[in-house]
């Protein structure tokens, strides 16, 4: 019998909680944190490009890193950033498990995933995300962790940067290893695929779909998802080649 059996979320959660835990709310969290991370990537890339922009033994990069680790506004923002990465990841995992459950126990024996404009990436956002999460953890341990907790990093010796560490040396040392270079480049490919869908999807989730402007959003998204990861990938390659004396 098809009678109404709406299960209403209890009032304890409050209207905002109800909003955020609804199917659309959960996606909005993904969308907004995603858009924040997209913006962050641009800032991160601009900073990282200091590594290779001028052949100055890391002056530009180290001074940038010093600024980033000491400015109180940036420091606050970075806490937000970590929180959003975690939120994006946890919410993503929750959605992934929810969606698996929604399919039911018996899966399709044959299933063709044909889409209307959605890319193959869209189907594998969860898996791509998991790989990226693993990458971020390695990346954080490798640089952020060493920067904060390792005793072995030498000082950055320049006027006005008392107490600063020579992070450039750390990065340069890492990218002397061809394995590391490959690891970072491959990770960027995963990020590119994740962004390929994520960028436009974030707008669709917010309801921003418009006959005239959506094609533009998609185009910007595609350009972004190629250029930004490419920018990141170029850095280890260039540094490796410089070390090898090729460049």
């Amino acid at each position: 019998m098809a009678t109404s059996t709406a299960k209403r979320t209890g009032s304890r959660v409050g209207w905002f909680g109800k909003f955020l835990t609804s199917s659309i709310g959960q996606k909005i969290i993904m969308s907004l944190t995603g858009l924040f991370l997209i913006t962050f990537l641009v800032v991160h890339l601009i900073g990282n490009l200091q590594l290779i922009m001028s052949n100055d033994d890391g002056y530009a990069f180290n001074s940038y890193a010093y600024f980033m680790t000491n400015n109180p506004v940036i420091k606050t923002t970075s806490i937000l950033l970590y929180a959003f990465i975690v939120l994006h990841a946890i919410q993503g995992i929750l959605l992934w498990s929810k969606n698996r459950k929604a399919r039911g126990e018996q899966r399709y024996a044959v299933k063709v995933d044909r889409t209307a404009g959605g890319s193959k990436s869209s189907i594998y956002m969860g898996s791509l995300g998991m790989v990226i999460l693993a990458f971020i953890i390695v990346h954080m341990v490798q640089f952020w962790g060493q920067m904060h907790f390792s005793e072995s990093i030498g000082p950055f010796e320049a006027e006005g940067y008392e107490g600063a560490k020579d992070l450039y040396a750390l990065v340069a040392a890492t990218y002397e290893n061809i394995g590391m270079v490959i690891f970072y480049v491959v990770a960027m490919i995963f990020i590119a695929f994740h962004l390929w869908h994520g960028f436009q999807s974030a707008f669709q989730t917010l309801g921003l779909n418009h006959k005239k402007y959506t094609p533009l959003i998609k185009a910007v998204g595609y350009v972004y998802s190629v250029l930004v990861p490419l920018g990141f990938a170029v850095i280890p390659i260039v540094m490796y080649l410089r070390h090898q004396g090729v460049l």
Partner: peptide
């Protein structure tokens, strides 16, 4: 309608467009 959709156990849209 969204509350009912969620209560029925349908999954969450991730804009795949299938």
């Amino acid at each position: 309608m969204i509350a009912q959709h969620d209560a029925e156990g349908f999954g969450r849209c991730s804009n795949i467009t299938a």
